[in-house]
Design a protein around this nucleic acid. Structure first.
Lengths: 207, 207
DNA sequence: AAAAAGCCAGAATAATCAATCAGATTTATC
DNA sequence: GATAAATCTGATTGATTATTCTGGCTTTTT
């Protein structure tokens, strides 16, 4: 009965979802056991302990998020800002998980504050994300959607803050449409001048 | 021994600090007892239970944050953006508490996700904050620091997101100077529109 | 001052949960 | 096919914690 052999990546995938939804303290090892069908002892053997499993799950979550942005950016039919918007929409699409916010945000708040090691890790992920967004902004600048005088890495920092704010507000229980509106405003505020963004929004609304 | 009479507002103030630093799950009633010197039973009598005490502490935290922005805004020597910057600096000044992030953020992530009641409360605080920031942005617009064509409440939403991002990154363990730089960039990005629009208006006038 | 009411302090209750263990069972090896 | 190794299962340990109880103490009331 139950899968005979422990599948590490399956456990990580399941644990990632559980931690994402319920937080570190909200998930017991028994939950993972119940959800995966693998037995407790095997989990301890494979991962060491709850915290280690969590870290593996966190890393998997980050890799997935990274891939999402990368893929959107690889589409040659989209401008940098369009690709960004597409990645964000995709991420927010899953109804069940929208309300869970973002595991990186949750971890930053819940665990990183009192765990030096997790803190370093989270800051590393943040930094990687900012780097990726920096590339997006640089491309946006090359495409003429970000003002030429603007520092693209500064714009990336702001954009990244918007990412975090999505995670917090979604998890707080905000309505999806409110969050979407906020994201729209933020992107508009990064794009060219204010007037240009107003025009863009009007165009969006008219569509 | 120990203060003879339980002082409700003192308990709330202490609890607020503890919850702020260690989160809801990170603080036990015993911690509050130890820190205030009042006895456990009296706390239960006065507040009902841990969750109720927390809610009182959360409310106190919000009121304090609100007052901070209000006071900065009342200074007639500062423009709206300057007042905002001043309020943010003041909030970030306390070294011990910078790393604790923002109790509203932490609560949004830790508790609101699974507590309907807390969620409503947090969203209410968020909404109040956004309203306040909307007034700031409207004043900034009147003062010519925010582009005339810009929707001030949209700008407020973006600014609010920056607030949340400060809380998350600080709590994740980010260096204060990095966070400060991000705030700077964000404010600049909101102001930038003004310059563009001023240029646009000048161009219009010259035409 | 006697009686009643409220209050204190620490013990007790009950629940949760990470981690370990020990005996039973399966799988691998020769 | 027998022996050794690995793995499973369920029980257990040990720690934490919110909340309540209890028996003594203090304050108030009559």
């Amino acid at each position: 009965m139950s899968e005979p052999k422990l599948n590490t990546s399956e456990v990580i995938a399941v644990a990632s979802q559980l931690f994402w939804r319920d937080g570190y303290d909200g998930v017991s090892i028994d939950d993972v056991v119940q959800e995966t069908g693998f037995n407790r002892y095997a989990l301890y053997r494979a991962f060491g302990g709850k915290r280690d499993l969590f870290i593996a799950a966190l890393d998997a979550y980050h890799q997935k998020g990274r891939a999402l942005v990368m893929e959107a950016m690889a589409d040659p039919n989209l401008t940098a800002f369009e690709a960004l918007g597409s990645a964000i929409s995709l991420k927010m699409k899953d109804d069940g998980m929208f309300a869970a916010g973002c595991l990186l945000c949750t971890t930053a708040v819940e665990l990183a504050a009192h765990d030096e090691d997790v803190s370093r890790r989270v800051l590393g992920y943040f930094s990687e994300m900012k780097g990726m967004l920096g590339a997006v902004m640089a491309r946006a600048q090359a495409e003429g959607e970000l003002a030429p005088g603007r520092d693209s890495s500064e714009a990336a920092e702001v954009m990244f803050s918007i990412f975090l704010a999505i995670g917090v507000q979604a998890r707080a229980g905000a309505a999806r449409q409110d969050v979407e509106k906020m994201v729209h405003s933020a992107i508009a505020s990064l794009r060219f001048g204010a007037q240009a963004s107003v025009l863009a929004l009007k165009a969006d609304a008219a569509r």
